[in-house]
Amino acid sequence: MKVRDIFKCKKMVGVSLLIFIFVIGLLAPGVSPHDPLEVNLSKRLLSPNFEYPFGTDHLGRCILSRIIYGIRVSVVYSVIIMLLTFVISLPIALFIGYFRGRLDYLIMRFIDVTLAIPDIILAITIVGVLGPSLFNMVMAILIVRWTNYVRFIRSLVIKTCEEDYIFSARMSGNSHFRIMRYYIFPVILQNLVVFGTLDMGKIVLLIAALSFLGLGTQPPTPEWGSMLHDATLYFQIAPFVMIFPGLALFLFMLACQLIGDQYSKHSVKEV
């Protein structure tokens, strides 16, 4: 098998896995075998069986159903956060990368200071100040991640502005807005797709980490990180309560990595 065929295979596996996860989350009410919030203490910590394929947790709730409904929190909110971050950071990065100057210097120095703090530490601090909730968790991740996007997009814009066709566009009398919209943005779009796809996995991991610490989604909302937190006390006697949510988190991150790795072969050359 040729190297190109291997990359195509990785891409198809990643895309298929990602689509499968999204479809399962979208059809959660129809495909989940049980109510994810239904408590049945008489069936607590049951091993995987025909009725409960992934077993039950410490409250007798179906683990498979909770994983399926957890897609709506972990995955859907990661997409929302990624899109909102692009909406916030793209205009800023285009402007400072195109015009440069003192404003660019001030913003980048602020971003350098922010990036010196690990994402999880900064997110924990923000949620700790605002209070644990799903909305505050989303706001914290937005505040943490937008600087990464601005720095990446700015580097793409600066690189693109050095191309000869940009000078030709300027000499032809095109406005700055038109150059940014029609000559720069389409060129960097593929790189943004790669970055966004890879970052979705990081965002899901950040959501899971905050929920694991009790700073994100609150019980009884099903979410992969909170499920891992609930499973810590029972892992030795019922390891499946932690294995299956962890596997769901791993598969989503793997899908994002496979897709991003396929396109990054081309985008690295362009950048």
Rank of each mutant, 00 (worst) to 15 (best):
F240N: 01
V31C: 05
I203R: 12
V129N: 09
M137Q: 10
P245K: 05
F99I: 07
F152D: 01
Q236L: 15
R66C: 03
I143Y: 13
K202W: 10
L189I: 05
V144E: 06
L64T: 00
S32G: 03
L210W: 06
T160N: 05
I188C: 02
C161G: 01
Y52L: 03
R178F: 00
A248E: 07
I120T: 11
F177W: 14
F185I: 04
P186A: 02
E223K: 04
L254K: 13
A208Q: 05
T114S: 10
S42E: 12
T56P: 01
G216N: 13
V113W: 06
S155T: 06
V113L: 13
N191Y: 02
Q190R: 06
L215F: 09
M242D: 00
D57Y: 03
D112Q: 01
L258I: 11
R178H: 07
P222G: 06
V87D: 09
A169K: 04
Y52F: 14
C9Q: 15
D57M: 01
I6M: 15
M200I: 13
G196I: 13
F86R: 12
W146S: 04
I6Y: 14
L228K: 13
T147M: 14
I117S: 10
A255W: 05
A169I: 09
K265T: 11
A231H: 12
I184M: 01
M253G: 12
G246R: 07
P132D: 09
C161N: 12
L45P: 04
F95T: 12
V187D: 03
L115Q: 08
L247S: 08
V204I: 15
I203N: 08
I19M: 14
L103K: 05
K265A: 06
A116E: 01
M227G: 04
Q262G: 00
K265N: 10
G216C: 12
D199C: 01
P132V: 05
I243Q: 05
G260M: 07
F185P: 00
G131Q: 10
L254A: 14
I158F: 07
R44V: 08
Y52S: 00
I71T: 13
V157R: 03
V204D: 05
S32I: 06
L17G: 15
V15A: 15
V193R: 01
S168N: 07
R178Y: 09
V271D: 09
L17H: 02
K159E: 13
L103W: 08
G14R: 13
S47K: 09
M200K: 00
I259W: 02
A28L: 01
F250C: 11
I81G: 03
I117F: 15
Y183Q: 11
I111E: 02
T114K: 08
V15K: 11
I259V: 14
L210N: 09
A209E: 09
V73T: 10
K8T: 08
N49A: 07
S155F: 03
L142V: 03
L45I: 08
M180A: 02
S16H: 02
I188M: 03
S264I: 10
V138R: 02
L46M: 14
R154G: 02
S47I: 00
H58Q: 14
D164F: 10
A209H: 10
I88P: 05
R145L: 11
G128E: 10
I67S: 07
A238H: 12
G131C: 12
V15G: 06
I19H: 10
F99T: 09
G246D: 08
S168E: 10
I124S: 08
